[in-house]
C-alpha cells in the first residue's frame, strides 16, 4: 500500500551537503519560521543532506576539549526538536537511494524513507516545491 503523504504548503527538497556552506542553517531557520507562522512543511532530503538525520549523530556533537561542559546539539537533535514541536505540520522524508549510496542508513524514527520514484507523490502533496542546494 503506497505511503500516504500528508498535504503541505511547501515541499523543501534539500539536496546540498552539510558543512559546505550555511545552507542547512538557513533551511532550518526558514522551516522554523514557516512553522511558527502556522504553515505545513515537508522536507525531502537528498544527497548528503540525508546525513543530517542519522541516529549515529546522537543528541550532541563530540565534546569540545576547550569547553568540556557545554553541550553542542547535533543536527539530528535540532531536526528532532522541530519534529517534537510541530508533530502535525512538519514531515521529514529521506531519499532511500541517496541514503544507501552514502551509507546514511540509520535515520531517526520519524524520518520516512522514500524511493526516488516516489518523489512525484510528495510534489503532488505540496502547494509549492522548492529545491535547495545541488546534489
Amino acid at each position: 500500500m503506497p505511503m500516504e503523504i500528508p498535504r503541505t504548503d511547501v515541499l523543501i527538497t534539500l539536496m546540498g551537503a552539510p558543512h559546505a556552506d550555511d545552507l542547512i542553517t538557513t533551511t532550518l531557520r526558514l522551516i522554523e519560521a514557516m512553522l511558527t507562522r502556522g504553515g505545513r512543511v515537508q522536507v525531502w532530503a537528498c544527497g548528503y543532506a540525508t546525513l543530517l538525520t542519522q541516529r549515529a549523530l546522537g543528541d550532541s556533537k563530540p565534546r569540545n576539549p576547550g569547553d568540556w561542559s557545554t553541550d553542542y546539539p547535533s543536527t539530528a537533535a535540532v531536526v528532532e526538536a522541530l519534529l517534537d514541536a510541530y508533530p502535525d505540520r512538519l514531515f521529514w522524508y529521506g531519499c532511500r537511494f541517496c541514503s544507501d549510496d552514502r551509507g546514511a542508513v540509520d535515520h531517526l524514527p520519524r524520518v520516512r524513507l522514500r524511493p526516488p520514484a516516489g518523489y512525484a507523490a510528495n510534489v503532488s502533496a505540496a502547494a509549492k516545491t522548492m529545491l535547495l542546494g545541488v546534489i
Binding site: H19, D21, D22, L28, N64, D67, T75
Partner: peptide
C-alpha cells in the same frame, strides 16, 4: 569561511 554555522558550531576552520 561560513560553512555551516549550525553543523560546525565550535569546530569551524578557525578552531
Amino acid at each position: 569561511a561560513y560553512r555551516g554555522a549550525l553543523e560546525k558550531q565550535f569546530f569551524d576552520g578557525l578552531y
